[in-house]
Design a protein around this nucleic acid. Structure first.
Length: 644
DNA sequence: GCGATCACGTA
DNA sequence: GTACGTGATCGCT
């Protein structure tokens, strides 16, 4: 079994967009403070502490007494694995004051563990006590399966650090090092290295697991005190207390609910795909005159550009291989019939390997459903991300991709799916933040925004806008959200950089407030070192003053995009909190199950639809009122595709 | 077995 | 041009 916590690595590896160096120059906002000498770190060996085992019901009752007298307590669970929806509780640790903690072991027998938890329940249930933890969604999920549903308020140190420093890491070892100059006992010292089959927490000797687990609760409590004092000065208290903390138990509920998948349908689809892939594969070998691994970009590049020579000046990747990405092949599709076959092959292979064959394997044996894991502390803008599996990138664009959405179904025949999504939310947020009169008018009049933009930049009546003009205008509108460049736009719609620049210039003439707003965002980033969302979520941009034009440009586009993407994230998070509260207060049997950035999906009891649908629409529409209308499209269906 | 690379799915 | 996560390949350990 694997390491015990998601705490260990939350961030996907920092992806360097630019190949360093920046002349080794430290910018104004870099913080070398985090590079603490390892030798100086304190550890459990040279730090006074009192970690006690409570392994009888009398001792556990004494612990509960202490917890009930405290204003706050920190707790942590030890488990047999990292999948909170499918692991067993091995023990719990508690702390109410620094350098002091208890460890309560839990036996493998489920009923015996239930009895232990019943003794602890009054402490978890008490809404007058603040519960502190690190990545508490994990612990709440584990406890859910033992009939423990802790009452807020909560203080999650991972989320506190996320609102303070969204682009840093948030695992406990890192926080302990930076804020406490302390190096906790490593999990590897208990259950072994990650690579070779890792041991099970269940098999760790009590004296060892006690030190490890109690230390976790102790350190987390100490971190809480450090971090809570930093929140006010960062202007992050409201964001933390009113959005991220209340959202945490909402995500816990969504993950526990999960979503049902139609396995038979996917298995049939897999057989269809296999058949089609086999024939496309053979057509490709025919056209290439040899067999090779089509899934290997390197081998494919050699076939296309050295054997078939379909381009005399092939584009190369960063590592000097032939580029064979979709955009490249699309442009070459007239040169040789093999190109289209490759694109078909890629599409079907992607669907089969990433979704059709994988999703059924992800069904939880306990529940028969799929439980994604939402990461609330990974993106630099405030969005959520989804893993194991990622349910935020289920296909929808192509005909065959949509087959996969059809496999997301209600939990049983008494239920039906409801999908609600914000319409053009990011553009509406720009219209709101910029105050641009023309764009605000377009939304107030309820125009098709891309057609309205096309009418303006191509100077034709809105009824006479061609499909091509609308498509171009749509690209420009998207480009605006991302911090447009003439090069980017030209690549996207296949025109010259010069033509793209003319379109952008005209766009800014028609929407002057947008241009001013973009310049203002960049200026704010230069002056303050950060930009922020409507709810005050900050993104720090140290590279905004970089001498490297690439890095500076990237920071400038982030200065434009982060408040827009992030404000949309603020809005849907508020909606989620309010909707969840209403559903639960009314004791309804309908559940929020998915979030895809601007969309929420619900598993709704058919008899409750008359209540749930208007409730969802109202809560989403009014979550974060803008100076222009917010629109929500909402639909029901027997599967996700139908509801969308 | 791990990590880099490439490609590609979503908003 | 923004933000993510996953799968296959391939070279290295």
């Amino acid at each position: 079994l694997k390491a015990l916590f998601n705490e260990l690595e939350f961030r996907t590896l920092a992806k360097r967009v630019f190949n360093e160096p920046e002349d080794g120059q430290l910018t104004l906002f870099e913080e070398p403070a985090e590079e603490v000498e390892k030798a100086e770190l304190r550890t459990i060996r040279n730090t006074q502490h009192e970690y006690l085992v409570a392994d009888t019901s009398d001792k556990i009752k004494e612990v509960v007494e202490q917890l009930l007298q405290a204003q706050e307590f920190c707790f942590d669970t030890e488990t047999t694995g990292t999948d909170a929806n499918n692991c067993e509780l091995v023990g719990l640790s508690f702390a109410v004051k620094p350098h002091h903690a208890w460890y309560i072991p839990c036996p493998p027998d489920y009923n015996q563990t239930l009895e232990i938890l019943q003794i602890l329940k009054p402490a978890f249930d008490n809404p007058g006590i603040l519960k502190v933890g690190q990545n508490m969604k994990f612990d709440l999920t584990v406890l859910h399966y033992y009939d423990i549903h802790p009452a807020g308020p909560f203080f999650d140190t991972m989320l506190a650090h996320y609102v303070l420093e969204p682009e840093q890491r948030h695992n406990m070892d890192y926080l302990a090092r930076v804020y406490l100059n302390y190096e906790p006992v490593s999990i590897e010292s208990l259950i072994g290295q990650k690579g070779g089959r890792q041991g099970n927490m269940r098999d760790v000797e009590l004296s060892l697991i006690k030190e490890y687990a109690a230390e976790d609760a102790d350190i987390t409590l100490q971190l809480k005190h450090k971090l809570s004092s930093l929140l006010p000065e960062a202007g992050a208290e409201k964001l933390f207390n009113e959005i991220e903390m209340p959202l945490m138990p909402v995500l816990t509920s969504m993950e526990i609910q999960g979503v049902k998948i139609d396995v038979e349908n996917l298995q049939q689809f897999s057989r269809d795909l296999e058949k089609d892939l086999f024939s496309i594969e053979n057509e490709i070998y025919q056209l290439a005159g040899e067999r090779f691994n089509i899934a290997s970009p390197r081998q494919l590049g050699i076939i296309l550009f050295e054997k078939l020579k379909i381009d005399d000046k092939p584009k190369l990747t960063a590592t000097k291989q032939y580029a064979t990405g979709e955009d490249v092949l699309e442009k070459l599709s007239g040169r040789h019939p093999i190109v289209e076959k490759i694109l078909d092959y890629r599409e079907l292979m992607k669907l089969k390997s990433t979704y059709v064959d994988t999703l059924p394997q992800m069904i939880n044996p306990r529940t028969g459903r799929i439980h994604t894991s939402y990461n609330q502390a990974v993106t630099s803008t405030g969005r959520l991300s989804s893993t194991n599996p990622n349910l935020q990138n289920i296909p929808v664009r192509t005909e065959r991709g949509r087959e996969i959405r059809k496999a997301f179904i209600p939990r049983n025949p008494d239920y039906i799916l409801l999908a609600a999504d914000y319409s053009q939310i990011e553009l509406r947020i720009i219209a709101h933040l910029s105050g641009d009169q023309a764009m605000q008018d377009a939304f107030r009049f309820g125009f098709d925004i891309h057609a309205a933009t096309a009418a303006k930049i191509f100077k034709v009546p809105i009824e006479e806008v061609t499909r091509e003009q609308r498509r171009a205008a749509k690209s420009v509108n998207f480009g605006i959200v991302y911090g447009i460049s003439a090069f980017g736009l030209s690549q996207n719609i296949g025109i010259s950089k010069k033509e793209a620049q003319l379109i952008i210039d005209e766009y800014f003439r028609q929407y002057p407030g947008i241009k001013t707003y973009m310049e203002k965002s960049i200026a704010t980033a230069r002056e303050r070192g950060y930009v922020e969302t409507i709810m005050g979520r900050r993104r720090y941009l140290p590279d905004i003053n970089s001498v490297n034009a690439n890095m500076r440009g990237f920071a400038e586009r982030n200065a434009i995009n982060a408040p827009i993407q992030g404000s949309a994230a603020d809005m849907i998070k508020i909606a989620m909190i309010n909707i969840h509260r209403e559903l639960r207060n009314r004791n309804l049997n309908s559940w929020m199950v998915l979030q895809v950035h601007d969309e929420l999906v619900f598993d709704v009891k058919r008899t409750e639809m008359d209540v749930v649908k208007p409730l969802v629409k109202e809560m989403m529409t009014n979550a974060l009122p803008l100076s222009i209308p917010v629109e929500v499209d909402i639909n029901t269906g027997e599967n996700w595709l139908e509801a969308h």
